[in-house]
Design a protein around this nucleic acid. Structure first.
Lengths: 180, 180
DNA sequence: AGGCCTTCGTTGAATGTTCAACCACGAGGT
DNA sequence: ACCTCGTGGTTGAACATTCAACGAAGGCCT
């Protein structure tokens, strides 16, 4: 018998039935599925919105904003490219491109690293700091309005725990290769 | 006095100090900041990884996979483009492009809608179903290993609640405009 | 029938991201 | 000094996404 209804599964579960090596798959249960899908669409909409707000109000993308924040937090307002990349969890290539755009916009400059001939540091400019300081209030307000203030404190703390674990796991299992 | 240390704030909080209209900003507290950042990097790493796994093992991107799932779940395995777009929370344009690629790969076909001359339906092909059924177990295993099984049941349920609220809020406040 | 407004979906260009290849430099061994 | 290897960062092309503009059809009103 041929099963045309794959079943109500979240973006990933697909209770098949007429498929190769099945029933040894550990599908998500109903409630897990709902949570997973809520997370998927919620995250999509949220990131989309935060990015849009920053762009419209400050001509800044979310990834650019994150880089400005990282630079603003360290002493000297300068960071090696690789460290910066790790800290935002983006590929090196991506950070190179992003920093190039930010450099053209006057938000940062590049400076070669004295202690290591290969190294390059991204440096926050006064203008970059200014843009960040203008953008930050808008952004925080958005994060509150669309996320933090919608959740019970305990629930939001749980989100923190869960994704801490996720990040640990994924940094851990990072296939030594420059996987990114 | 000029404040060079912006302060330890999450990707968004930036306790400024020497800035325009400050202190009327409702910054996140320490714990909220940690949660927010964990969520940001965790999500980045997680999506990255799930996408990579699908690509390497099944020549399928995560957005493509989600579309296959949606189609597989609905009666007739066909869906209007707009409904599909809403269900995955992507822009119509994006879905148009994605479906075009998927059509070229033989995963879906397009069919014009009889009841509405403007309408177009995406239809899952048998091959598309096959690819989905092959990919699903891998994908679910990934979702479990990098997320679900790392979290306490209560914590994961909390994630569901939080992002349900987020999605509701954002669909709600959707500026009537075809914002996407 | 005509006109106006909206929604549906597509298009192509601009923008961002990934991917593979690459060069320069540092580290360790001989 | 010389290899060899790994790392840091960049490059350009391929690929994916966004954005603004558009044509086609439905809905409504007169």
């Amino acid at each position: 018998m041929f099963n045309h209804e794959v079943g109500k599964l979240l973006p990933m579960t697909t209770e098949t039935g007429a498929t190769p090596h099945d029933q040894d798959v550990n599908w998500l249960d109903e409630s897990q599925q709902r949570s997973w899908r809520a997370y998927l669409v919620g995250t999509t909409l949220l990131m989309d919105r935060l990015d849009r707000d920053l762009r419209e109000q400050h001509r800044l993308s979310l990834p650019e904003y994150e880089i400005l924040v990282r630079l603003s937090e360290v002493r000297g307002n300068r960071m090696r490219m690789a460290v910066l990349a790790d800290s935002v969890s983006h590929s090196r290539s991506r950070v190179t491109h992003t920093v190039t755009r930010m450099e053209q916009a006057g938000l940062v400059t590049r400076d070669s690293c004295l202690s290591d001939g290969r190294g390059v540091e991204a440096v926050l400019t006064p203008y970059g700091r200014q843009v960040l300081e203008n953008a930050a209030p808008t952004h925080v307000a958005g994060v509150r309005a669309m996320l933090v203030d919608l959740a019970a404190d305990d629930d939001f703390a749980a989100v923190g725990r869960v994704f801490d674990a996720v990040a640990d796991k994924l940094v851990e299992s990072n296939p030594a290769l420059d996987i990114r």
